[in-house]
Simulated assay, not measured.
Amino acid sequence: MFSMTDHATDHLGFLQDARTWTEHWCRHQAEDQGLELTEQDLAIVRSLRDFYFEYDLSPAMRPLVRHLKNSFGAEVGNSIYLMQRYGESPARTLALLAGLPKPKNCL
């Protein structure tokens, strides 16, 4: 069973150690955000985690859009789609779901 106590977070709810992330963590966070995750959402989250561990960067909006466009095509890799799907701050929401630090320049 999932337990929030297994995951240390900062004062904003972001995981302090991205290596402790699990899919259960992601699903719990999505539920708290009012999102019903699809397989595509999980693929996006996994792709974002790969990006983070390769570049040691939790991407803000522009690099996020570029990465998702390269990985998933223009339909997913555009700011309008991302804002409609993940709210006002997609980079922040996706970083939270992926267990990554809050991207710099995100409110």
Rank of each mutant, 00 (worst) to 15 (best):
M1T: 15
M1S: 15
M4G: 05
M4R: 04
T5F: 12
D6C: 10
H7C: 11
H7Q: 09
A8E: 15
T9E: 10
D10S: 12
D10K: 08
H11M: 12
H11Q: 15
L12C: 06
L15Q: 06
L15C: 08
Q16K: 15
D17F: 09
W21P: 07
W25D: 10
H28Q: 11
Q29H: 09
A30K: 03
E31C: 09
G34K: 03
L35H: 13
E36D: 11
E36C: 08
L37G: 14
E39L: 13
E39F: 10
Q40P: 05
D41N: 11
I44V: 15
I44Q: 11
I44L: 11
R46W: 07
S47Q: 13
S47M: 11
L48V: 05
L48M: 15
L48P: 03
Y52E: 08
E54N: 13
D56L: 12
L57F: 05
P59R: 05
P59M: 10
P59W: 02
A60T: 05
M61R: 15
M61F: 09
M61I: 15
R62N: 07
V65Y: 03
R66K: 08
H67C: 05
K69L: 06
A74M: 01
A74H: 01
E75P: 01
E75F: 04
V76L: 07
G77C: 03
N78A: 02
S79Q: 08
S79M: 06
Y81G: 00
M83V: 07
M83F: 00
R85C: 00
G87Q: 02
G87Y: 00
E88W: 00
P90I: 02
P90T: 01
P90V: 01
P90K: 01
A91L: 03
R92E: 00
A95S: 13
A95Y: 09
A98D: 04
G99E: 09
G99N: 09
L100T: 05
P101K: 12
P103H: 06
K104D: 14
K104N: 12
N105Y: 15
C106M: 12
C106D: 10
